[in-house]
């Protein structure tokens, strides 16, 4: 198992958000995490990335407990979080943004390989490499945010609502690229997404979350689309 969350209880200050959440992500898998607003999806990702330390429970990444680790060390261990709203560094160029993601790579050949891999996935980033990141379109910024997260060749990529602010057609293309990331870069993906229709079509497995708990686990993500369980989670 690549990632195991066991009985996580976490929150902000005195306010609890997650109540005994447990979930697993396997190697080479694209796992979708869906659920209504306020379910605690983003909080779950922040717990995994080390930005919030859980009050109880453990986060095992490749067998090692990372639940109390500082965020930059979690990242150095191979977990990369792409935060919501494609937050690229707007005052740096596209290339500098990617450079920021790849500083951990000491070997310059390895760095170049990583960079070329990103450019193959997102050719538009190579065309615009010396442009300020703030001048990219919304979709391009999201690609840059994902590319930046991939530069360090993480074992696990955490994507928080990559659809935010994207046109439906752009989103469809982006989902296809995310699948390509999983296949070509040998990276497992945990994706949180509001656009359930798009994400369940491409994900392998899925968890449905509600009010800080997992309410449903489905081995074939797409079947959820034709299932009542999902609708119940959102509506009841």
């Amino acid at each position: 198992m690549l990632l195991e969350l066991k009985e996580i209880e976490a929150g902000y200050g005195k306010k609890s958000v997650l109540f005994g959440l447990s979930m697993n992500v396997k190697e080479g898998q694209m796992m979708a995490l869906v659920g209504p607003n306020g379910a605690g999806k983003t909080t779950t990702l922040r717990v995994i990335a080390g930005q919030i330390h859980p009050n109880r429970g453990s986060v095992l990444f490749r067998g090692k407990d990372i639940s109390q680790m500082m965020p930059h060390l979690v990242a150095q261990n191979g977990v990369s979080l792409v935060p919501q709203g494609s937050r690229v560094f707007t005052s740096l160029t596209v290339y500098e943004n990617l450079e920021m993601g790849g500083f951990q790579i000491k070997d310059s050949n390895e760095f170049r390989e990583s960079l070329e891999g990103i450019y193959r996935l997102f050719p538009v980033l190579e065309e615009r490499k010396s442009q300020w990141a703030g001048t990219l379109s919304g979709g391009e910024q999201q690609m840059l945010a994902i590319g930046r997260g991939l530069m360090s060749r993480p074992k696990l990529l955490l994507l928080d609502e990559p659809s935010t602010g994207l046109a439906p057609k752009v989103l469809h293309e982006l989902m296809k690229t995310i699948v390509a990331v999983k296949e070509k870069m040998n990276t497992s993906i945990l994706i949180v997404e509001q656009n359930v229709n798009e994400v369940l079509k491409v994900a392998d497995e899925a968890y449905v979350m509600k009010l800080g708990r997992i309410v449903c686990y489905e081995q074939c993500a797409e079947t959820l689309l034709y299932d009542d369980k999902l609708r119940k989670a959102y509506l009841s």
Binding site: A49, Q51, P71, H72, L73, V74, A75, Q76, S80, L81, V82, P83, R87, F89, T90, S91, L92, M100, G101, F103, Q104, R148, G149, S152
Partner: peptide
């Protein structure tokens, strides 16, 4: 400069 723009994002890149 990255820290100036977004501390959380910089942290999740391992800094």
């Amino acid at each position: 400069k990255a820290i100036r723009e977004d501390e959380n994002a910089t942290e999740s890149l391992g800094k």
